[in-house]
Design a protein around this nucleic acid. Structure first.
Lengths: 207, 207
DNA sequence: AAAAACCGATGACATTTGTCACTTTCTCTT
DNA sequence: AAGAGAAAGTGACAAATGTCATCGGTTTTT
């Protein structure tokens, strides 16, 4: 199988090529060093798999993958990167990457390539473990360990829906002043400044 | 490698056993039919991999996996199920399952077992594709489609980070009054009432 | 060059928001 | 029944927010 290797770091690229070509069934037709090259080399060599770094000078790996997939929807792209950054993982998944491995996980690379070639998706353990953290639990917002009482939680949710104090008061059958008081204590406990930051907090940490 | 098979449906279990044992390097020491049996049989046979259904009478696959992993943290568990239900996928990931395949994806099972045995994580394409849907950022990231100009978009983003008008003014090198004016037009264009609703709009529809 | 369009800024204004110190009301406990 | 302690409310206040009309420069259009 043909594996196109693209990595910012020339040393890493050559090492990978050496390791991969030690396998009898793998050839590395070319080495790229950034996203632009990745796209051009992919067109030229039409490899079975593209093994690519994410962080690179110039066009990054994700944008390159996006461009390649637009042109070759069946492209098998396996990201090999140093950091398991949430942002990257999400974007890679969304793009339809076939895999996402950490460079640390060196001995996994060859078997991963075989697995991807066979149609599997391969994500390193660290990546898989991260996914639940990135996931929002849409069913029951994890509100249990927040230091808020029942009323404060209610108010937080309503703020996160965009209601103003008067509307919250009507919804909860409280006076507007009481709502303000509860809101005030909520802000203090969560260490945020105003209702907007509270809504943001809710979307980022709770829901 | 020893593969313990647990499936509600006797027919499926026997079919799997037959298929797997056609492989020279796979043996199936036992067949279980529910979660309780899975735990007992795992203790008894200490298989290399547990291949298990999720929906089963009695104890389900996820709870069984949870119990087994508590006892054997290195257990390699591969779920084989009919439905790619969001709930299940999230829980399986959280537990630390090594894989999650759909039964439809029949010919994937053997290579997947080999991959898992080799230390990989294997998730079917349908599952991987689902993950972004489960992610908290479901909508399209098309800032370009919004009827806002450059400044208004900047301000929207900063509001969505929780900055107040003064801070936005400092960040953008504008006067606070100007920021208010731009904010005002942004609110009108997006048909939201205040900065909190704007932040919510951003998290729901943009980012 | 004149007109139009645009960008940023002001000032005034009504509302909303958040904070604080208290009071009232209700509900338990003893 | 008395009192402690909640839950809820009040009033006052400063600050922040959002709206509006308008003004002074640029740049663009014609």
């Amino acid at each position: 199988m043909k594996v196109l290797v693209v990595d910012d770091d020339r040393v890493v690229g050559i090492s990978l090529k050496t390791i991969l070509e030690a396998e009898p069934d793998i050839t590395v037709p070319a080495l790229g060093q950034d996203g632009t090259e990745a796209v051009a080399l992919y067109r030229e060599h039409q490899p079975d798999i593209l093994l690519m770094d994410i962080r690179m000078e110039g066009m990054n790996g994700l944008d390159a993958a996006s461009a390649i997939l637009a042109e070759y929807p069946a492209a098998k792209i396996l990201f090999l990167t140093t950091f398991s950054d949430d942002e990257y993982i999400v974007r890679a998944l969304r793009l339809g990457a076939k895999g996402y491995l950490l460079k640390q996980d060196f001995e996994s690379i060859v078997p991963a390539l075989h697995a991807v070639f066979g149609g599997q998706n391969v994500f390193g353990s660290e990546v898989i473990k991260k996914i639940p953290d990135i996931l929002s639990t849409p069913k029951e917002p994890d509100v249990s360990e927040l230091p808020l009482n029942e009323k404060e939680i209610e108010i937080m949710k309503l703020v996160a829906e965009g209601l103003n104090n008067k509307e919250i008061a009507q919804t909860l059958f409280l006076s507007e002043g009481t709502v303000r008081n509860y809101l005030s204590s909520t802000l203090e406990k969560l260490e945020v400044r105003d209702r907007t930051q509270l809504a943001i907090y809710y979307y980022k940490h709770v829901q």
